[in-house]
């Protein structure tokens, strides 16, 4: 207490609470879940309204690319988890390698996404395109949801990549160490959430024909 009294006059009381930090992260993740929850709600309502047209529209999506991206994301989730295990075992090199590998996988995911989207756009399937406007209402809505939901998810992948890059730097600079790694844990939680959302997007758009 003597220390803190002196400290109070000049610098703020230093307070570290790993459980609190993780709690904050989980609460934030719930907001993400509910953000996407709103989209899933819209999806399910329109799927109920336009059952048949959703089925037809989904046929045009490439299950192959979807499956590949699923495998990529699942693997990247593994590597993030491994990097945390590595830092706990004081294996700084392995932790950094695993995060780099995660970033690489994320990059692959985005490249796939790019080719997939540009494929649709080449076919003339994009918002306001004459081809899309000629289609039935349900199909317009399907593509609207497809672009918004996978787009927003892609945005989250990009944010996750930025966050993980910071983690890489932090580990390199020893700001994340075997006894202080809650930042990495939280970044990992965020990355797993991105994976989690994809786990649901994948069947809803690519599998249910």
């Amino acid at each position: 207490m003597t220390n803190s009294h002196q400290a109070a006059a000049a610098i703020p009381h230093v307070h570290r609470d790993d459980v609190g930090a993780r709690m904050g992260m989980w609460l934030f993740l719930f907001t993400e879940v509910l953000l996407f929850g709103g989209l899933f709600l819209a999806y399910s309502v329109y799927r109920y309204d336009y059952h048949e047209q959703f089925r037809l529209a989904a046929m045009d999506l490439d299950t192959g690319i979807g499956t590949l991206n699923t495998l990529i994301l699942l693997t990247s989730s593994l590597t993030v988890a491994l990097s945390i295990a590595a830092i706990q075992k004081k294996n700084k090199f392995l932790a950094m390698a695993m995060i780099s590998f995660t970033l690489l996988l994320a990059l692959f995911f985005m490249i796939n996404k790019y080719f997939e989207w540009s494929g649709h756009i080449a076919e003339g399937l994009y918002p306001k395109s004459p081809e899309l406007l000629n289609m039935k209402n349900g199909e317009i809505i399907f593509y609207g949801l497809y672009y918004v939901m996978t787009g927003l998810h892609g945005l989250h992948v990009l944010v996750g990549m930025a966050v993980l890059s910071f983690m890489l730097v932090f580990i390199a600079k020893d700001k994340i160490t075997f006894d202080n790694y809650v930042k990495l844990e939280n970044a990992g939680l965020y990355w797993h959430l991105v994976d989690l959302i994809w786990i649901f997007l994948f069947p809803l758009f690519y599998l249910i024909h």
């Binding site: 907001t31 993400e32 879940v33 509910l34 953000l35 996407f36 929850g37 709103g38 989209l39 819209a42 309502v45 329109y46 309204d49 336009y50 918002p127 306001k128 406007l133 039935k136 209402n137 349900g138 317009i140 809505i141 593509y143 609207g144 949801l145 672009y147 918004v148 927003l152």
Partner: peptide, 28 residues
Amino acid sequence: PVIGITILLVIIERVFGVGIFDPALGGD
């Protein structure tokens, strides 16, 4: 977050013309 996504959808509809809520495109 629910209003967040709802608002984002309205902006996306206005800016990109994506069909989500607009009844003219089948929205509800």
